[in-house]
Design a protein around this nucleic acid. Structure first.
Lengths: 161, 161
DNA sequence: AGACATTGCGCAATCC
DNA sequence: CGGATTGCGCAATGTC
């Protein structure tokens, strides 16, 4: 959804002239408001100084900065594609991460439940032992007076998944 | 640190046609309105004759798409700000999510360790219990196959992923 | 050194 | 009307 008028000429290469249609109007270009004020200092590959490394042909940067250049267009298109891909991946990753959080949260709950269960079991068992110790100490042997039914301890571990 | 001068230059015709306009002008750059960089001046010559601009009931769409329009520039700037903010937030959120994953993973390990411990404890106690039961059984009825204690039901807690 | 990947940013459409 | 989102293209930069 969210479709917007956008022409996606997937011109898979094609030498010769075409595609590039230039519509003259809409001259909106130069940053009008910015009446060419102080421009940010552009970092320049200066360095030669005292004969440093071999400064390669210090030509102008990209002699063909011409947007008309076919090569330029080609590069742009490629980059646009790459950008799209990258963003898609990024988004996907974020989504995955979010999902991971959910999964981990779920598992955490599960584990905590299990801990609770085990703790309870342990507690019961310990009580049982204590009680028994009592009985022994009292020199009494009422067989199973207490509610010592091992069954309670055994019917557990019912969690799966 | 990665600040780069940048220039804007976009054109997307409302028609949906990607207009490629080429203007072989010099590489005049401007507007470095990049994050927290100076670049304060940004005023356009105020409209002469005061500002009694009555919003014309324009039926036409965007008659004033003029980039020169002060209003336009203002809107753009505002939007740019909003965009920046939004993106910042988005990024922050992603980061937080990632961190959450890490935290959850850590906690998970912690919980699992605890489970392991509890399980072990439980196991030991149960064994003790069984042993004791055996003793009792031996005293009461020395049957050979009397080892049919409920233990069989209990030796289970050893399953974890 | 060329190609693809990332990233910051501006623009415009759209959502709310 | 105005901020918030989002898709997209551009250019600088990073990485291989």
């Amino acid at each position: 959804m969210s479709k917007q008028p956008q022409q996606k000429l997937t011109n898979t290469d094609q030498n010769g002239v075409s595609v590039i249609q230039s519509q003259a109007h809409s001259v909106a270009n130069s940053t009008g408001a910015t009446a060419g004020l102080q421009q940010v200092p552009q970092l320049v590959p200066v360095s030669p100084g005292g004969g440093g490394k071999a400064t390669p042909p210090s030509k102008m940067k990209k002699t063909n900065m011409d947007k008309d250049s076919e090569e330029y267009r080609q590069r742009r298109e490629r980059n646009n594609l790459a950008v799209k891909k990258s963003r898609m991946r990024s988004k996907q990753k974020a989504q995955d991460t979010q999902q991971r959080v959910n999964e981990l949260k779920e598992e955490n709950e599960r584990l905590e439940a299990k801990i609770k269960l085990l703790s309870k079991e342990l507690s019961v068992l310990k009580d049982l032992f204590l009680e028994h110790a009592h009985n022994l100490a009292d020199n009494v042997q009422p067989a199973t007076t207490a509610t010592v039914t091992p069954g309670d301890l055994c019917n557990n571990n019912n969690n799966n998944q």
